[in-house]
Design a protein around this nucleic acid. Structure first.
Length: 969
DNA sequence: GCAAGGACGTA
DNA sequence: GTACGTCCTTGCA
């Protein structure tokens, strides 16, 4: 935690005198200090990174009027000339600037800014924060702490000096000759002519420091004044003892100002374009507008100058104070007002712009490329899409790049279109007239890596991965797919659906150009001209969608979700995918052979038992044999009228003495493992890296979980002996070791927190076996010596609760009657009454709102909550009970993943995060470093909910290291 | 050649 | 009873 306190009044005074900024805006209003102030706020957010990056921030101003110091020394600051008019007019504007940056602006009558700063600084330090005070005011140096927990930062621009100058213990000592805790004693003696602090005449800083270093403080010095050898100095001290005491009171900052906003209220919130740009426009700050537009990913042309500010001479304070601004941010937006109205207007504007394919440009010369580079720099943002030879980001090669800077424009830069090979033996070579790929990459790289230029894409993870292989680390990004996911969940998805829904536009289908099926052409085989229309359209449409979706974040209170759980995760996932994981081909190949033989034996046995040959892989044929030919009782039909032959049915039959059923179950298990894993996985080993690279989908799961595909590495077997053999084929690279770190019972812990179940919370607090505890509560059985079946039942019920329990489902799971299952549920609700309240609340909410919410504010949409179909309604009810639990757990691990890399780097730990399996993270670390790595990983994972949410249950992570995934798990 | 259904791997 | 992705068969184009 890091609190940044900006001495606002101090800044403008010093900036004005250090380097008078006389800039005026077009109507003559002086705004130089405001501009400097805005630049400073911008620089602070830009330059303070890593450990120095503040989590909390406020700007403090002096209030008008007298302070408590005037009560005991009316001459305090009495000699100060009034501030010049061109500075006075900028006071209210700096407060407006602070609000425009979404930073709390604080001033209190009766107190100086310094006192408020001292109060917050001390409170924060006691709460374990690091504190930085942005000021060079010597009066604040008394607050500096020797351990570095409170430091000053001087940002006033001075020619020939670095822009940021830290003031710590050493700097204070240089200035005052004493440690910070004795600064007030030195000031008490030497006084301050500017503030009219009297001090002791004839004593300057050097003498004061010498005396204080000798005597400790003012009181002790005065008590021993008669011992001073120099007669003049002795006399002055004795004569001015009272003045020294008053001076000390004057310079001592109060640390108990009754501040209104608690520390928590100073937590940083993302800047809001709708607050920022109207202000910057009114001030006519073009450069900073452009830079912030890039940083924020917003189009400033969509905002009008704030009319209150644009007309000079008015007091901007009357229109907004902090509490109002905060309330606006926090409360749901009413359609037709504020940000919501803005979003609607932008949507209408963008939707009205026609798509004209003739406006798109094919870039084939360096001059054309230059024009586009200038456009991008000028705009501060660009929509980008890459066309490649395939869908696998780790294997596909770049074929072309499309860019768009305004809705309606767009270009395509072909770099890899190939001539069709005349024969199989002959290389096709590149189509003539394309710019060399190296030239294009080199030209784009500086812009794509420039932190002040926003790169907008649809599924940018793909672009990040592709470009990474050409040496480009693309950042920062905005992603229309993730914007849509943050706003509307999974209901829309791909670019074409979004375009259709928000723009009423149908994009060119890829299949129209390339055909379908196994004869589908890859992008490099397409003619450039039609490919360009398709490609440039994607960039243009992506940019339009961004214009439509981005303003909705603020209007619909989804900014925090997007900024903290979606946007920062994409590059993390890209890196995980790029790393891949090592898989031992030999192990899989050996297992394939083994499974194949054993499956063949089961197949022969099944044919024998059935008395006929049939396809074991056909549920249809199997059902007919079991229930028609053999005439077994108790068969049920699926919804399509076929016999049900699922594992549970066969398991049942096996228990009733049907050996064929057991054989089929065993056969299915083996062929599943063979087909899905041992045969399929080796084909995913990348030729370039020798590793398997999955692809994570960040925006396709209802609850906020990730999903994994091509291959799915989130369902690698673990439950059976044979399955674990497959898992053991996932190995560490030579010299490395794998670490698996998984959250223990995360969903039950989340449930205990959100449903506020004291008994569950207590059990987690005490580290009890949660299922045994549940069983003990429900069945009145002591935990000691509990039969395993009793615990098993309780475990099923706990899981059932998470899944939105029904008597029907629980009965199925436990193989008991509906009535008995109903009794269990009733007992559970009696023992843990909060659970029923939680469930009822979710059921109620989903019907009213159409969504339920995780603890981090993710909305999970259920459009069918009020369906006319009772079965569907019940389904939605169960899902809406499950979603906040599963979703909150998903949000927690997302937060851990986002923080993991910087945290490990800061702890100097070399660990590569490779995989995520919902509640588990897999890392690869150098052999011998696993103990330190596991400790650091656990810390990040266990603290991942904070500070956004303080869970009322402990979060526990178990970590293990081993050479392969099976042993590490 | 493609979509749907069934089955089954994971959390 | 929740949330996924993949493999295989089937049935229709």
């Amino acid at each position: 935690m890091h609190l940044l306190l900006v001495d606002g009044s101090g800044y403008i005074f010093r900036a004005f005198h250090a380097l008078p900024q006389l800039n005026r805006k077009s109507d003559g209003l002086p705004v130089g200090c405001v501009q400097g102030f805005c630049n400073m706020l911008f620089k602070l957010t830009e330059d303070l990174k890593g450990e120095d990056q503040p989590t909390h921030m406020a700007v403090i101003f002096d209030a008008k009027g007298k302070t408590f110091r005037d009560d005991f020394y009316p001459e305090y600051k009495a000699h100060r000339p009034p501030a010049p008019e061109e500075l006075v007019t900028q006071f209210p504007l700096t407060r407006a600037a602070t609000r425009a940056f979404s930073i709390p602006s604080i001033e209190m009558e009766g107190w100086e800014a310094d006192d408020i700063i001292a109060t917050y600084a001390c409170n924060a330090r006691q709460a374990g924060y690091k504190v930085t005070i942005v000021s060079s005011d010597k009066d604040l140096m008394q607050l500096v702490e020797p351990d570095g927990s409170i430091r000053l930062l001087d940002t006033i621009p001075r020619p020939g000096q670095p822009p940021l100058r830290w003031i710590g213990m050493d700097e204070v000592f240089t200035k005052f000759g004493v440690t910070p805790d004795k600064v007030i004693d030195v000031q008490a003696l030497c006084g301050d002519s500017v503030d009219n602090v009297p001090g002791v005449p004839g004593i300057g800083v050097k003498t004061a420091a010498e005396l204080i270093n000798q005597y400790g403080d003012v009181e002790n010095l005065l008590a021993h004044a008669h011992e001073i050898k120099q007669p003049a100095r002795r006399q002055k001290l004795i004569d001015n003892a009272e003045m020294a005491r008053i001076s000390k009171r004057l310079v001592t900052l109060s640390q108990d100002v009754p501040v209104e906003l608690p520390l928590d209220a100073l937590a940083r919130v993302p800047m809001a374009p709708e607050a920022l740009f109207p202000f910057l426009k009114a001030m006519e700050f073009a450069t900073i507008t452009k830079r912030l537009a890039g940083l924020l990913g917003a189009d400033p042309t969509l905002y009008e100058a704030d009319p209150e500010l644009a007309a000079s001479g008015r007091d901007p304070r009357k229109s907004a104070d902090l509490s109002v601004a905060r309330a606006k941010l926090a409360s749901p937006q009413v359609p037709g007002t504020g940000p919501a109205l803005h979003a609607q207007e932008v949507h209408a504007k963008i939707r009205a712009i026609p798509v004209n394919y003739d406006d798109y440009e094919i870039v084939t010369t360096p001059e054309q490329l230059d024009v586009w580079l200038k456009r991008i720099i000028d705009k501060g943002h660009v929509a980008i899409d890459t066309e490649t030879t395939g869908l696998d980001a780790q294997a596909a090669d770049l074929v072309g790049i499309c860019l768009a800077t305004e809705p309606g424009n767009g270009c395509y830069i072909p770099v890899g279109h190939s001539r069709g090979a005349a024969s199989l033996l002959e290389e096709g070579g590149l189509v003539e007239g394309q710019l060399p790929i190296r030239l294009v990459i080199d030209a784009l790289k500086p812009l794509l890596e420039d932190k002040s230029i926003l790169k907008i894409g649809q599924n940018t993870k793909y672009e990040i991965s592709i470009l990474a292989r050409y040496g480009i680390t693309m950042a920062p990004i905005d992603d229309t797919m993730l914007l849509s996911y943050a706003l509307d969940g999974v209901q829309y998805n791909g670019l074409n659906v979004l375009a259709d829904n928000w723009l009423g536009h149908t994009c060119i289908a890829f299949s129209d150009l390339a055909g379908t099926g196994k004869h589908q052409k890859t992008f490099d085989q397409l003619e450039i001209a039609p490919a360009a229309r398709y490609a440039a359209e994607d960039a243009d449409i992506t940019l339009r969608l961004w214009h439509v979706l981005k303003p909705r974040l603020a209007a619909e209170n989804a900014t925090t979700l997007y900024e903290t759980l979606e946007r920062p995760l994409a590059p993390v996932l890209s890196r995980m995918e790029q790393r891949g994981i090592s898989v031992d081909r030999q192990i899989l190949s050996r297992l394939s052979g083994e499974f194949s033989q054993r499956a063949a034996a089961f197949e022969a046995e099944a044919h024998e038992l059935a008395g006929q040959s049939f396809n074991l892989g056909s549920p249809k044929q199997l059902g007919e044999i079991l229930f028609d030919k053999m005439g077994l009782e108790g068969g049920t039909k699926t919804k399509t009228g076929a016999w049900a032959t699922g594992a549970d049915v066969l398991e049942d039959l096996a228990l009733k003495g049907v050996p064929l059923a057991r054989t089929i179950v065993d056969w299915r298990q083996l062929t599943k493992l063979k087909g899905t894993y041992t045969d399929a996985l080796p084909a995913y080993i990348n030729a370039r890296t020798g590793r398997v690279h999955t692809s994570y989908s960040q925006a396709s799961v209802l609850t906020g979980r990730l999903s994994s595909n091509d291959p799915n590495l989130q369902n690698i077997p673990v439950r059976t002996e044979d399955g674990r053999k497959i898992r053991s084929a996932f190995v560490a690279a030579p010299g490395k070791i794998l670490i698996s770190a998984d959250y223990s019972q995360i969903e039950l812990r989340v449930l205990a927190h959100i449903a506020d179940i004291q008994a569950l919370k207590d059990a987690f607090e005490e580290g009890l076996d949660i299922h045994a505890m549940t069983a003990s509560e429900m069945f009145n059985v002591p935990v000691e010596g509990m039969p395993s079946d009793v615990r098993r039942r309780a475990k099923a019920i706990n899981f059932g609760i998470i899944y939105g329990i029904s008597a029907f489902g629980l009965a199925n799971q436990l193989g008991i009657g509906r009535g008995e299952a109903g009794d269990y549920i009733k007992t559970y609700f009696e023992r843990f009454p909060g659970i029923k309240d939680y469930m009822d609340e979710q059921r109620r909410r989903v019907k009213i709102d159409g969504h339920v919410t995780t603890i981090f504010g993710r909305k999970v949409q259920f459009p069918n909550a009020n369906s006319a179909n009772p079965a569907e309604r019940s389904f939605v009810e169960r899902a809406s009970i499950n979603a906040p639990i599963q979703g909150s757990a998903a949000d927690i691990i997302r937060r851990a993943m986002i923080r993991m890399e910087p945290a490990l780097k800061q702890a100097n730990i070399d660990a590569d995060m490779l995989l995520q399996v919902h509640d588990e993270l897999i890392f690869e670390v150098p052999l011998g470093t696993e103990t330190a790595a596991m400790a650091a990983i656990k810390t990040v994972m266990e603290g991942a909910a904070e500070p956004a949410v303080r869970l009322s249950v402990p979060i526990q992570v178990d970590a293990h290291a081993a050479h392969n995934w099976d042993e590490a798990h």
